[in-house]
């Protein structure tokens, strides 16, 4: 996973609540192989609307409450990242979306978004600071998630260091709960 340090670039603001993952990427594009890039499918059904806030090239997206709710599709994170977005700031996130984001190096920051406007922004994850023309603010993040993002850690590698404990747990699974074939 690509480590996340300090990111700088244009921010867009998409303030409406409940932007769901079907809007971020409609299901029909989930059949596409990742190799061709998912950025072209980002907000495919709404990006042609007048006043749509993303023009391409944004690095930060400021969203509304419950951003990324709905379907578990990781394609929503692929689409944002392949379009160049590295960070989403919103008052709250759908749980699965936030988890998927962390595992792909997309930083999600849950905080109030009043005061953020479209324009240049710097997001400093190691320092936990956001700087924009009219705002400088600190943000909170789960320490484990921060470490994984900053170091670009591979979760699976991390878990595989605990193979012995997994094997011990597995050996103790009661017979009825074991898979039958």
């Amino acid at each position: 996973m690509r480590p996340f340090g300090v990111v700088n670039g244009r921010a867009a603001v998409m303030a409406q609540a409940n932007v769901d993952t079907d809007q971020i990427i409609p299901a029909r594009f989930l059949r596409k192989p990742r190799g061709g890039g998912y950025g072209q499918f980002l907000f495919a059904d709404i990006r042609a609307e007048p006043g749509f806030p993303l023009r391409g090239g944004e690095v930060v997206l400021v969203g509304g409450r419950n951003f990324g709710c709905g379907s578990s599709r990781e394609g929503a994170v692929y689409a944002l990242m392949d379009a160049g977005v590295r960070c989403v700031i919103a008052p709250s996130f759908g749980d699965i979306f936030a988890g998927n984001a962390a595992k792909n190096g997309l930083l999600t920051i849950a905080m109030p978004v009043e005061g953020f406007v479209a324009g240049d922004m710097t997001v400093d994850l190691p320092g936990q600071v956001i700087r924009a023309a009219n705002v400088e603010t600190r943000f909170a993040i789960d320490p484990f998630r921060k470490r994984c993002l900053v170091e670009g850690l591979d979760d699976i590698g991390l878990t595989l260091e605990h193979t012995a404990a997994i094997a011990a747990h597995e050996a103790a699974v009661p017979g009825w709960a074991r898979p039958r074939s």
Binding site: E74, V77, I96, T159, L160, I166, E170
Partner: peptide
Amino acid sequence: GIGTSEVEHVLATQ
């Protein structure tokens, strides 16, 4: 429900 990265995690480690 889990995302694809977690699907891989479960496949690799249960």
